[in-house]
């Protein structure tokens, strides 16, 4: 089976001696929606940099749709569309020129490029701005412009390095819808993001990178299944008495708010039954924190502890 991305033993040491990537092993299947998460400086952007040839690797092998970047770099690059973290277009160029030039670098003729530019600018709601210089766009528009640019050569794989950073929630959700449509059309999507809710909502598989190493690589469902306890916040109709729940850790914050910690083995029905017997009416309920966020923090802490221990042992 040919993977969309296959990374083996990837290492990167910068000139000053900083080892950004220690031994990355990663496989992404064709058509996947894959999340690459990690704290700042974990090695996400360096990994993407190596894949797109913006960073020279020190050691290891990277294959894009079966094309090794060491001996078939141009074929490998032709399959990738990159949406980088930083704005990296000519701020003085009109949008259409940016898109058409980018398509040209991939060998797409001007006539076809103009048709595609119109299609993507319309889909990403930038058509009205097509003749304006890129610097005139808002932050959210600039992010969408970079997505349109990455699609101009119709790549098989789209890499998005924090595509929704600084984008308001309405536009972010529109971008999510757009990315889901692209994925359904067969484009493999690799996403790095700081919005863990985004990864949870969009991605089927996930790798967590920390300190230049993959500390977790599994399915999103598998990862979330590792959660033992979730905290829910219940909004209640005002009550005058103290609520008491058997077998459930709870905290009554005021006369209309109750927090409960539920383990996987427990049922919410039991909680509701107990509340009902005490004449407590539940108006609404929500997760206290993002589930993935809790896991992410715990995995990173675990990895940090392991490193500390190995240092002590050494």
């Amino acid at each position: 089976m040919t993977y969309a991305l296959e990374i083996t033993g990837l290492k990167k040491t910068y000139k000053g001696g900083f080892q950004a990537l220690k031994n990355i092993e990663l496989k992404v299947e064709q058509g996947d929606f894959f999340a690459l998460l990690g704290p700042n400086g974990a090695g996400k952007s360096t990994t993407i940099g190596v894949m797109t040839s913006l960073v020279n690797k020190t050691q290891g092998q990277v294959k894009i749709y079966g094309h090794d970047i060491d001996n078939a770099l141009e074929e490998a690059k032709s399959h990738i569309g990159l949406v980088p973290q930083e704005f990296n277009f000519n701020q003085f160029e009109p949008l259409t020129n940016i898109l058409v030039n980018q398509a040209g670098y991939y060998g797409v003729d001007r006539k076809t490029a103009l048709i595609r530019a119109e299609k993507y600018l319309k889909q990403l709601e930038l058509w009205d701005k097509r003749n304006e210089p890129a610097r005139a766009l808002s932050g959210g528009m600039k992010r969408r412009l970079m997505i349109a640019r990455a699609l101009m050569h119709e790549p098989k794989m789209l890499i998005l390095d924090e595509p929704t950073a600084g984008v308001d929630i309405e536009i972010r959700r529109a971008m999510w819808d757009f990315l889901q449509v692209l994925n359904k059309e067969g484009i493999t999507i690799i996403l790095t993001t700081h919005y863990l809710e985004e990864a949870e909502m969009l991605c089927r598989n996930i790798a967590i990178i920390d300190g230049g190493e993959i500390v977790e690589n599994t399915t999103m469902k598998g990862l979330l299944a590792q959660l033992d306890t979730e905290t829910f916040v219940l909004d209640l109709a005002p009550i005058q008495h103290q609520v008491s729940l058997d077998g459930v850790v709870s905290r009554q914050l005021d006369d209309h708010t109750l927090e409960i910690d539920i383990s996987k083995k427990q049922s919410l029905n039991q909680v509701f039954a107990q509340l009902s017997s005490q004449d407590v009416e539940v108006k609404s309920m929500r997760n206290k924190s993002n589930r993935l966020e809790a896991l992410f923090v715990s995995l990173i802490n675990q990895a940090d502890k392991t490193k500390e221990n190995s240092k002590v042992e050494a």
Partner: peptide, 14 residues
Amino acid sequence: WQRNVEEMLVAPVP
């Protein structure tokens, strides 16, 4: 400086 040279570097341009 504007980093738009990356547009060419990531593309399969010899």
